[in-house]
Design a protein around this nucleic acid. Structure first.
Lengths: 218, 218
DNA sequence: ATTAATTTTTAGACAAGACTAAAAATTAAC
DNA sequence: GTTAATTTTTAGTCTTGTCTAAAAATTAAT
């Protein structure tokens, strides 16, 4: 069906397309995949022939419906494997990405559907991201970046915007994780840093931290 | 470290070396991997440079100690994944091979050791084959092919010599599986076919079947 | 011990996926 | 609306792993 390399391009285009409804530029893909623009052009031609993307020279690419289906299939696998690693194999949320990047390419519909059942049909991965169903439908819950909410807001941490190991380890250190209740005590106008209350203790965090944490109001 | 292709060659050489202590021929490897002898020669050169095998032109190859370690590592992963698929994901023993062939190439020491623990440190895969430990040690239990045992033998099925789907499905159909008790009632001198008793019922099986079933005497 | 058959290796080609360097198209700047 | 800067594409090369066809080495046959 698709090679690992093709799958990585498809997944990347899908993610980049989430925050922009224009065509995705060759350069943006190259940057994300840490490769060269010329390599991207070559691959785009191939994916275009396979009807995964629509491509007009110099105008970026868009996924077709088919391409989107392929992308969500890969993301479904990636996130289910992440749940497996954390729930069953004692991985922490900052350790799962690498391994899931490999596991997402395993081809076996039975495997992934049985895994889904084995895990109890989880709705979210360990970073709070939704797990697409078999048809590619994604149920997004209502959530906001902590940085856009007003003083006094009480909510629960339901996701992160940055899944880098450094950020996740920082959160662990501060006792911040999915399901943890957070209250915005104060917002500093000068630099946008916040004082929040978490586990009944005050904590000061930068605006950058706050703009990578998703909160569900309660 | 090693590419999937390299790993497949290493594994194949290891398996072929089990029943012959001479060098493994280029042709034998080609046949097993369903590829051409010329491709094998090329790969052997590479593996030789990487000190996985010892190679002298026209004389076949042998794994080095290092190569054997690599091979058992791959086999360990393959068999642990097979256990996972059968025990946790409702795969039957004739469905696991394909998927395990993919999963065995996933690179993550933590993954495989946690999986081992999660499965309760199993000693054998779903076909009765032993699972190497982290150091590559393999504990072989005492077993014989059903075809070499005398009339009157009572034993337990502990393994198969052929893991093809056709054979395994045949065994399922006849109620033969790991742990099932078998008594040799009679052996036909003409064609070596056997009458065995299984679950208190007599069953006639060909010599070919018998020479693919491993029995542990009790 | 030559000839014949088989096995193995070389030589040259190809596809996938990546790269560099240069050309072409597009966008931005004045 | 030209010129300049940027982005994208082309052209050509490289590596990995494969193939075919032919040459070389080994083994078998008489």
């Amino acid at each position: 069906m698709f090679s690992q390399s093709e799958e990585n391009y498809i997944k990347t285009i899908y993610h980049l397309a989430l925050d922009s409804d224009k065509g995705i530029s060759t350069n943006a893909i190259a940057k994300q995949l840490d490769t060269k623009a010329s390599s991207v052009t070559d691959m785009i031609k191939k994916l275009s022939e396979k009807e995964v993307v629509v491509y007009k020279k110099y105008q970026g690419v868009k996924l077709t419906d088919f391409g989107r289906k392929v992308a969500t299939g890969i993301i479904r696998k990636h996130r289910l494997w992440e749940v497996f690693l954390v729930e069953k194999l004692n991985f922490s949320w900052d350790e799962v990405h690498e391994v899931a990047e490999q596991l997402e390419h395993i081809k076996s519909p039975k495997l992934i559907n049985e895994l889904d059942a084995f895990l109890g049909y989880p709705k979210h991965d360990p970073h709070g991201d939704p797990i697409p169903d078999e048809e590619g439908n994604i149920h997004q819950i209502e959530k906001n970046l902590l940085s856009v909410l007003p003083k006094g807001t009480v909510g629960v941490c339901v996701g992160v915007n940055d899944s880098s190991s450094d950020f996740l380890k920082f959160l662990d250190k501060q006792g911040i994780g999915l399901g943890v209740e957070i209250t915005i005590i104060d917002i500093e106008p000068f630099d946008g840093s916040l004082t929040i209350e978490i586990n009944n203790k005050p904590l000061s965090i930068s605006n950058k931290i706050a703009s990578n944490l998703y909160i569900k109001k309660i």
